[in-house]
Simulated assay, not measured.
Amino acid sequence: MRSAVRLLLPLAATGLCVGLVAAPASAATATTAAETWKWGPTASSDYKGWASGSVRSSSSGLRIAGDLYDAGGARTCSWVTIKWLTDHGRYRTATFRNCSQSTPRAFRVNAGYMLLAKARVCRGTATRVTGRCSRWERVWTQGG
C-alpha cells in the first residue's frame, strides 16, 4: 500500500502544478478588452458636412460608429456613406443623413468580419445626394 502511495504522490503533485499554471492563461483570454480605432474627420468638398468616429472590435466582428454633422443652410443635408469589404469578398454600403444644423446624428454599422472600410461625406437634399462629395477615405484596413 505504501509503495502505491509513493508512486501516485509525484503524479498527483505534477497534475496539480499543471492545473495551477493553466488556470491563469485561460482566465486572461476570457477578459480580453475590445480594441478601438479612431477615424476622421472626413468633410464634404464644400466643408459644410463632416463625419468622424471609431471602429470597435466585438465578439461578432467590427462595428463602425460615428457622428455626422451638418453646417449647411436651410433645406440642405449632409450624407455619409460607409462602404466595407466583407471577408467573403463582397462590398456592402450603409448611408445616413443629417438635416439638423443644431445636433449631430449618431450612426452605427455592424460590419462583421471585414477586410477594409471607407467613408465618404456628401451634400444633398432631404431625399437624395446632390454632389459636393469628399473622396473615399480609409476608415479601417485589416493589418494596418
Score class of each variant (00 low, 15 high):
R2N: 14
R2S: 12
S3W: 10
S3C: 06
A4M: 11
A4E: 15
V5P: 00
R6A: 13
R6C: 08
L7K: 07
L7G: 03
L8M: 11
P10D: 09
L11V: 11
T14G: 02
G15I: 02
L16D: 00
L16Q: 00
L16W: 04
C17Y: 02
C17H: 02
C17L: 09
V18F: 07
L20W: 04
L20N: 01
A22L: 11
A23W: 12
A23R: 07
A23D: 03
A23P: 00
P24K: 05
A27G: 01
A27V: 12
A27M: 12
T29H: 08
A30F: 13
A30N: 07
A30D: 13
T31A: 11
T32V: 12
A33R: 12
E35H: 10
E35S: 12
E35Y: 03
K38N: 14
W39D: 03
G40N: 04
P41T: 02
T42G: 01
T42C: 04
T42V: 15
S44A: 14
S44R: 00
S45M: 09
D46H: 05
D46C: 07
G49E: 01
G49M: 03
G49S: 10
W50T: 00
S52K: 08
S52F: 14
G53L: 06
G53S: 07
S54M: 10
S54D: 13
S54A: 14
S57T: 15
S57A: 12
S58L: 06
S59A: 13
S60T: 09
G61F: 12
L62A: 03
R63G: 00
I64A: 01
A65K: 09
A65I: 03
A65C: 04
G66W: 00
G66M: 04
L68I: 05
D70I: 02
A71Q: 10
A71Y: 08
G72C: 04
G73N: 08
A74H: 05
T76E: 10
S78F: 06
V80D: 02
T81N: 02
T81V: 14
I82D: 00
K83L: 04
K83F: 00
W84P: 00
L85Y: 07
D87K: 10
H88W: 04
G89W: 10
R92M: 10
R92S: 09
T93W: 08
A94Y: 05
A94S: 15
A94P: 03
F96T: 08
N98P: 13
N98T: 11
Q101N: 15
S102E: 13
S102V: 12
T103I: 13
T103L: 14
A106T: 14
V109T: 11
N110D: 15
N110S: 15
N110G: 12
A111C: 11
G112I: 12
G112A: 13
Y113K: 13
Y113E: 10
M114Y: 08
A117V: 08
A117P: 07
A119V: 15
A119M: 11
A119F: 09
A119G: 15
C122V: 09
T125A: 11
T127L: 13
R128D: 14
T130W: 11
T130E: 11
R132W: 10
W136E: 08
E137N: 11
R138V: 12
V139G: 02
V139N: 01
W140Y: 13
T141V: 10
T141S: 13
Q142H: 09
G144C: 07
